[in-house]
């Protein structure tokens, strides 16, 4: 880049910043802060949507004006174990008043697990840069004693048209098998706990949806999702820290990444970090261990040697 073009670039960036003003600047990234959100609660071009795991938590108090998504019915096809089809998603987005010119802020309980999953599904259907996560989610909002409301606020439906599903964001079994067979250069990043990864246990206690086998996808690396989060307030660590965290296991953005967990939902939290915060090429494998671990004859890595849940 020549000196002249550098100067030109600088001038353009400066002019753009001045034109857009502070608020818009704050929302150029994939995250918004609780402070920014509270200042922009009444902006008609900001749509806040809660995606929480625990039922009833939204209804008993949510960020004022927020709409609700029940992830296990709204964002999935309940019978075929698939993400919501294009028509279902389009109907949902229209009902929520979501469109490409609306800044959508997703947030939820449990460190934004399912809000991140929502962001992944939104992205697949063409809503990417205008969809943000509230950094710290419900946890930080509550810790900072910011207001919550229980009354519903009606929104005007949008005329959003769904895009063709972006297949690059979603890894299927064949994509994962290709990495195992070294036919693909993608790396699989498994975000489950070390004990699940090593095969000591098949799943954490209390989960009914299991694989028959214990262990992990051969060649995959393990960074539990929670390591990317500041435990105190649920915010994501800084991009530098995150880069370092994943570089420790050889994930540095030079090769495509596939994120995986047990059922593919927590892994979207890490997918969001890699794809949106760090800008790596990343796909989420929603089949995850309950699909891969159950397929007859596929090779697995099982360092702990657990067979049928025992030794």
């Amino acid at each position: 880049m020549s000196v002249l073009s550098l100067i030109r670039h600088g001038v353009v960036v400066l002019a753009a910043s001045l034109a857009l003003g502070g608020a818009a600047l704050a929302q150029t990234g994939p995250l918004v802060s609780t402070e920014w959100l509270e200042k922009n609660l009444n902006d008609p071009k900001v749509r806040i949507v809660e995606v929480s795991v625990e039922p009833g938590i939204y209804e008993r108090g949510h960020i004022p004006g927020a709409q609700n998504i029940a992830w296990h019915t709204d964002l999935v096809e309940t019978v075929s174990r698939d993400i919501a089809g294009p028509e279902k998603f389009q109907a949902l987005a229209r009902k929520l008043g979501v469109d490409k010119d609306v800044t959508v802020v997703l947030y939820g309980d449990n460190n934004n697990w399912f809000a991140a999953w929502g962001a992944w599904v939104f992205d697949i259907y063409g809503l990417r840069d205008n969809v943000k996560l509230l950094d710290g989610g419900r946890k930080k909002w509550e810790l900072e004693k910011r207001p919550v409301a229980t009354n519903p606020v009606p929104v005007k439906a949008s005329s959003f048209t769904v895009s063709e599903p972006n297949k690059a964001l979603r890894a299927r079994l064949t994509d994962v098998v290709a990495t195992v067979e070294k036919k693909s250069e993608a790396r699989v990043l498994d975000i489950r706990s070390p004990d699940e990864f090593s095969g000591k246990i098949i799943a954490p206690a209390g989960f009914q949806e299991l694989a028959l086998r214990a262990g992990h996808i051969p060649g995959s690396v393990n960074v539990p999702w929670a390591r990317a989060v500041n435990q105190a307030d649920g915010t994501l660590k800084s991009p530098e820290e995150l880069k370092k965290l994943y570089a420790e296991v050889g994930i540095d953005g030079s090769k495509p990444v596939i994120t995986s967990c047990r059922i593919g939902e927590r892994s979207s939290h890490t997918w969001f970090i890699l794809s949106r915060v760090l800008g790596y090429q990343a796909a989420n494998y929603d089949g995850s261990w309950t699909e891969y671990g159950n397929v007859v004859g596929l090779p697995i890595s099982n360092p702990a040697g657990t067979i049928w849940g025992g030794k």
Partner: peptide, 15 residues
């Protein structure tokens, strides 16, 4: 009326 304005769908009021 506030939590589930339309009761006719598939959803039940939370909890």
């Amino acid at each position: 009326g506030a939590w589930l304005p339309d009761p006719s769908g598939m959803r039940l009021p939370p909890t």
